[in-house]
Amino acid sequence: MRRLMCLLACVAVAAAGCEREARRYTELPAAANRSTAVRLTMLQPGSPQPLSNVQSPYQYNAYGLSEGKRLYAAYNCAGCHGLNGGGAIGPALTDDKWIYGSHADQLFSTISQGRPDGMPSFGGHIPDQQIWQLVAYVQSLAGMVSQDAATSRNDDQAAAKPENRIEDARQIQTGHR
């Protein structure tokens, strides 16, 4: 029994490791194929339908997160949201406040559609796959992805905690600071 448990644990670790190391250069996994409408609010008329549970296909994927970090700089997300997500022209991405939602599909639509108060619309300008990589990286800035897969260091000036050491912002209590 003990052996079996050990074997299962090894398999589980190996499987997780596979996902962490997976390289997906072109295809999008099923999770990214969104059929449900994105909701930006919890409030619904009548009986609420469950919120969709779409996750970024790169939430556990080191390569995708690393690409997200590269694209975050290359597409000048960093110029508005801070090199490490602390915010500047645009809001901080490292805290527990999400104007348009922190769910992966909400972030995807925010990046793709843009938002009227200043967020540019990147849809049609960059591939969907890259948007999903950015979604995963943005979530990592708030500690919302696997710490095993999150990027671990800046190539440039270290001015904030590395992404794999950021506390899950959803755990931050909004009371006393």
């Binding site: 801070g82 090199l83 490490n84 997500g85 602390g86 915010g87 500047a88 022209i89 809001p91 901080a92 490292t94 805290d95 406040k97 000036q157 001015a159 904030a160 905690k161």
Partner: peptide, 15 residues
């Protein structure tokens, strides 16, 4: 703009 000064580069350096 409620920036997060845990990022010292927030606000293009003001954090």
């Amino acid at each position: 703009a409620d920036l997060d000064p845990r990022d010292a580069t927030a606000g293009n350096g003001w954090g």
